[in-house]
Design a protein around this nucleic acid. Sequence first.
DNA 1: GAGATGATTAGCT
DNA 2: GCTAATCATCTCC
Length: 200
Amino acid sequence: MKLSTDFYQVKEVTQIARNLLGKYLFTNINGEISGGFIVETEAYAGIIDKASHAFGNRLTNRTKTMYEAGGIAYVYLCYGIHEMLNVVTSTEGEPHAVLIRAIHPTEGIDLMLERRNMASIKNNLTAGPGSVAKALGISRKMNSLSFLSEEIWIEDRGLVFPEDEIAAVPRVGVAYAKEDALLPYRFYVKGNLYVSKPNR
DNA sequence: GAGATGATTAGCT
DNA sequence: GCTAATCATCTCC
C-alpha cells in the first residue's frame, strides 16, 4: 500500500530517511512501471544544512518546492547532466528533503536497462542518485509531483531491515559544518550491492 | 544580461 | 585516483 501523507510530514527528516530504507519506489511512465526498494538515502535538514539548497532559509524559484508540505518530489538538475530525486518532508514552510541515492530494482528491470543503455544488469544500474533518476525515467517534469499520484509513488510492502543491517554515517565533506558534521545523515543497507559506495 | 558553479558520473591512468 | 563533461539556476552588474 502507498505511504500516506502522515509518513512524510514527520518533523525529523532523519527519521524519515531511515524509515524510507526498504520502502518500494515506483514510477509509471507512459503506462510502463519500474521500481524497487530503497537502499540508500541522505537527509537534508533545510536551513541548517550547508549542503541543502535551502541553507540559510534561501527561497528561490527552484527551492520553493522544498518549502511545500511533505509528500511531494523535488527533482533538479546537477552538473548539467544528472537529475536527482528528493522526497520533500515535514510541513509547509520547513524545507526538509531526503535524497534517494540508491534502490534495489525489482520491477521493470528491462525498462531500466534500456534507459541506462546497458545490456545486462549490474550493481551500478541504480547506484547513485543520478543513476536512480535515469533508470526510473524521472525528469524535472516530475518536480513537485505528489507521491500519491499515478506517475510516482512509494509503497510499504512490509520489508523491514533490522537495526544492525542499517548504517547511519556522517556525510563526507562537511567537516567545516561544526557539530553538524557529526550528524548521521546518510543511511544505507549494509552489504546491499546497489548502495552507491559503501563508505564514501 | 553574462559569468560562476555544483547534493555527480563515467572513463581513463 | 583523477578529471572532463555540461547546463539550469543563482548572483551580481
